[in-house]
Amino acid sequence: MASKEHPAHIVRFASNTQLEPEPLHVATNKDGVLEAHVGMLRNHHTYRIEIPRTHTFGPQITAHHPQPNIYVRVSDVSSTQTEADGSFSNVITCHVKTIKEGNIAETITISSDSDESKCEEILVTATVLLTNQGNPMLKTGVHMLSHEHSEETDFTEWPGHGKEDQDDD
């Protein structure tokens, strides 16, 4: 019961509210770099991300890594669709494997198969949460593929803290 000093607060929950995930897209960031921000991901998971890209590179493109990537690997480029304005669109599929918490920032390059001078780099970024920080809502185009269990345990070799001390009881 609320007192005069502390009035009661009424909280109402909408039962039919559905949250819509934000779509994954490529945009120019504040530094002028093309960026696909994947959002928040969980540690020790593998994700498939689908990056939509509209371009003027022609009907055949290739996506690759300009340098070895640790987290982001290109796995497929969809068939090219021709848009009404004469541009082309593809979906670049990548696998992202999270192996530590923090920020991921790795680059993929898209280039024309017919004209080597036509290319662009896309910075793929994500924030990786610790395993105990909850389940983030994934953006449209981001799909969890697998979850690896951490190899870390509470076992230590220090006397009084190890499994062998529990066996003596």
Rank of each mutant, 00 (worst) to 15 (best):
D115E: 06
T98W: 00
I92W: 02
T98Y: 02
G86S: 06
N90H: 13
K97A: 12
C119H: 14
E83T: 13
T93K: 14
Q81Y: 08
P68L: 01
I99Q: 10
T80E: 10
T109W: 03
E116I: 11
I108Y: 09
S117H: 05
G86Y: 07
T80R: 04
V72E: 01
R73S: 03
P66N: 03
E106T: 01
S112E: 11
S78L: 12
Y71E: 05
S75W: 01
I110P: 05
N69R: 01
V72Y: 01
D113T: 11
S117M: 05
D113C: 10
G102V: 02
E121Y: 02
S78F: 08
K97R: 12
Q81N: 09
N69G: 04
N103D: 14
E121G: 10
V77S: 09
I110S: 00
K118T: 03
P66I: 01
K118D: 00
I108T: 06
K118L: 11
T82H: 03
I92C: 04
C119T: 14
I70H: 09
A84G: 01
E106R: 02
D76S: 12
D113H: 01
I99F: 07
V77N: 04
V72H: 01
V72P: 00
D85F: 14
S75N: 08
C94V: 08
D76G: 09
P66V: 09
I110M: 06
T98M: 03
I104K: 02
A84S: 15
S87W: 04
I92P: 00
I108D: 05
I108S: 06
E101T: 07
F88P: 02
C119G: 09
I70M: 10
S117Q: 12
A105H: 04
N90S: 09
C119M: 13
C94G: 00
D115M: 03
S78Q: 12
E121N: 13
V96S: 03
S112K: 05
S87P: 07
S114V: 15
S89M: 10
D85I: 10
V77T: 13
C119Y: 11
K97Y: 02
F88Q: 05
E83D: 13
E120C: 12
K100G: 09
T93I: 10
S79R: 15
D115L: 06
E101Q: 09
